[in-house]
Amino acid sequence: MAPHDPLTLPKERCVEFLSSLEIPIAGPVSTGAGEVEYRIAPPGEMILDGYVNSAISPVRFPYPQTQILWRYSQNGEPRFTPEDQSLRMAIFGIRSCDVTAFRYLEHFFDRPPAETTFLDAASKILLVSIACNEPGENCFCVCCDGGPFLEGGFDVQLTDLGDRFLFEIGSDRGAEAARRAGGMLKAASEADRTRRERLAEEALDKFGITSHMATGIRKLTSRRVAEELWARLAARCIECGGCAFVCPICTCFDVADMCDGESNGRRERTRDCCQYAGYSREASGFNPRPDKVSRFKRRFYHKLSFFYLQQDGRHGCVGCGRCVSACFGGVDMPAVVNAIRSERIEADA
């Protein structure tokens, strides 16, 4: 993709811009309870600014909690029909952490053998992100290379400059969106660019939570975390699964075949949780992670150890903060990483 100079889009023309894309748009819509959720809705209903991220990530559009992979029929010749749920659409207002998660999932599912259900759906989605001038109270993307402003990964990144958005193009698909917008977009001034840089710098100082991921990665990878600490942290896990279900980059899933009558059925994939005892139980009945402590430890090894960082291109957290809201026991990612960091063990002394 050729580099593009930043543009600006007046806020009052944002709805017009989204309409010009001529595809269904999902974006932040008020739930009426002081929250937003990402929903396919008319562009006029989208919230343009001042919202904190949704409880469930918009990565659910290509990767819903439950989805049909294919249907089967045994009437006559057995037939297996893949379920095409992909939709050419845009996600407007997606936050930086979720864009990072989206690209992580593409990388993950593209590992051989490629998982085409997700990849097909993801390939048809245009991501128009809005950078975070004001992080939410649980956000810590700044510690996870997940935001608050992105250098890449987006198709279009918008930055709220008050009465207009700075409009950055990050891909050919983003360039096509800009072409459709035509005269709505103007070249950004030097002052606009400077303001964008200043907002990005100021945002860094607004995070209430810090999570020392590098220390966590180092200690976990070198296995210098005491068993007693794992036991103490796991004691506060009630195995609700919330951390996995809200995490935009968790990829544990379960597959079940559901009968629709005697001759028809469907295979469904449902997001699952590695904290559940049954998740790792093998067909023989043997469970390599039979207790809560081993499952808890395993989750954080998968998220943070260097082995997975190398394999997946990044560690397993984008700092969206959803696990902070979801966890009953306060043993969310930043809490665990900070407990690991502050633990003094002999090897570290």
Binding site: I56, C240, G241, V246, S325, F328
Partner: peptide
Amino acid sequence: VGISPILTHPTSEGRLCRRGWTSH
């Protein structure tokens, strides 16, 4: 096809147990 917690709910404050998460 899925569940979303409600962050502003006075009792749950966005937390659901495994029964809630699989209730669809």
